[in-house]
Amino acid sequence: MGKTIFVTVGTTQFDSLIKKITSEEALETLAALGYSQLTAQIGRGEYEPSESTSRTNGHPAVSVSWFRLKASIEDDIAASDLVVSHAGAGSVMDCLGLGKPVLVVVNEELMGNHQTELAHKLAKDGHLHFCGVKDLVVSLKSLDWSCLTPFPPGEPAKVARFLDSALGFV
């Protein structure tokens, strides 16, 4: 049984990522890396990948499946060995929270693209890797996942405590 890779684009559309990761070149690379299953969450994207199993040279093939949206993708993340995610904070936090290695792919087409800030920072601090769509395949081949460190979860209770005291709740 090979490894599973999960691709998520959140509630947006990110067709160029879905096209690239399900391209023959990418699937061959994944097969060579020992992946046998690719699940893609494509959000509101227009491009629907074919669910066929790819052909590869010598390696067991990667089977591709996809869906659009779910209330929670936690199970999909938990079941995967690697997550390729758009830069949305929510998806990134989901992955880090579950302790999964993440490759964030930055969507250069988005306006103002502040999302890169978070990916840059978390990559700089050694919690994830990030790349653009163009160098996705190269990154998959060359990145070292063992050097990543877990990101400690945030503490929303701090805000709740602050609010309690601000409103005078005792």
Binding site: A89, M93, E117, V159, L163, A166
Partner: peptide, 12 residues
């Protein structure tokens, strides 16, 4: 009482 928590994705 209005509380604003800037999004986690806003680093800089």
């Amino acid at each position: 009482y209005i509380v604003y928590v800037e999004s986690f994705c806003r680093v800089t």
